[in-house]
């Protein structure tokens, strides 16, 4: 499988002089097509910083980011916009749908922005709404939906323009456990159907067994953990649901 997203020696520091704080310390990563990774770590460990760099939203202090084998030029704002527009899909903690547009329009506007043909947009919207069981809600506004429904729409929005990379920042943080689990399962399923790289940041360790890779970050250092049977077993033990295992 080809590497769609590659980080080479990525670092990120804030401040200057004696007050420099290094948030990311030389991150080297490769994400293959269709691979689902989860990024975990305590608050302030650098998860969101790394996700922002992967999403071409934040320039690293050093290192190189390659998207589909092309180095991202962080000094060129318009090329960053183009990469985000064509190759990336985002899912945010609060869904962040546009409240003044219907679900249908929330999806269509992303397709139009990505330069898709209207017929293609219509087909794609229909397909995703079917797959995510959102058809009955397509003419409603985001405020008329539950948190879980909104996140399902956010998944559809992230995938609509067939991005090669989907990044999700704590997509279940505002949801209860069952709804959150359903959302993540749907996200994984859809990303796999689309053969997209999926990187999800979460605090919820109960989600870990669902992913292909577990990336743990602490004090700016990234460590890759192996998925173990024990983790999976623990995950599926209902008695442990309220006390999930740490890494």
């Amino acid at each position: 499988m080809k590497n769609v997203l590659v980080c080479r020696g990525i670092t990120k520091s804030y401040g200057s002089g004696n007050l420099v704080e290094q948030v990311l310390k030389r991150v080297d990563l490769e994400f293959s097509q269709g691979e689902a990774s989860v990024l975990v770590g305590p608050s302030g460990s650098g998860k969101t910083t790394l996700l922002s760099i992967l999403g071409c939203l934040l320039e690293p202090s050093s290192g190189e980011l390659l998207v589909e084998n092309s180095a991202v030029n962080f000094s060129d704002k318009s090329s960053l916009t183009e990469v985000r527009r064509q190759k990336l899909g985002f899912i945010f903690q609060q869904a962040q749908l546009l409240p003044f547009l219907t679900i249908d329009d929330n999806l269509s506007v992303v397709g139009r922005n990505a330069g898709m043909e209207q017929t293609d947009i219509d087909q794609r919207v229909n397909k995703l709404l079917d797959r995510l069981q959102l058809q009955p809600l397509r003419h409603k506004y985001p405020t008329q939906l539950s948190g879980g429904q909104r996140q399902r729409v956010a998944i559809a929005r992230a995938l609509l323009h067939r991005p090669s990379i989907v990044l999700a920042d704590e997509p279940t943080a505002a949801l209860d456990w069952n709804t959150g689990k359903t959302v993540v399962e749907l996200l994984l399923e859809q990303a796999r159907i689309e053969n997209a790289v999926l990187v999800v940041v979460t605090h919820d360790t109960r989600m870990l067994p669902l992913f292909d890779r577990i990336l743990s970050i602490a004090d700016g250092l990234l460590v890759e953990r192996q998925q173990t049977a024990a983790t999976e077993n623990t995950f599926y033990t209902e008695t442990n649901l309220d006390h999930p295992p740490g890494l």
Partner: peptide, 16 residues
């Protein structure tokens, strides 16, 4: 402003 931030993140051009 939050909606505009979302649109920027989603890759909407400044001219849009």
């Amino acid at each position: 402003i939050n909606n505009y931030a979302t649109l920027l993140a989603l890759g909407f051009h400044q001219k849009s």
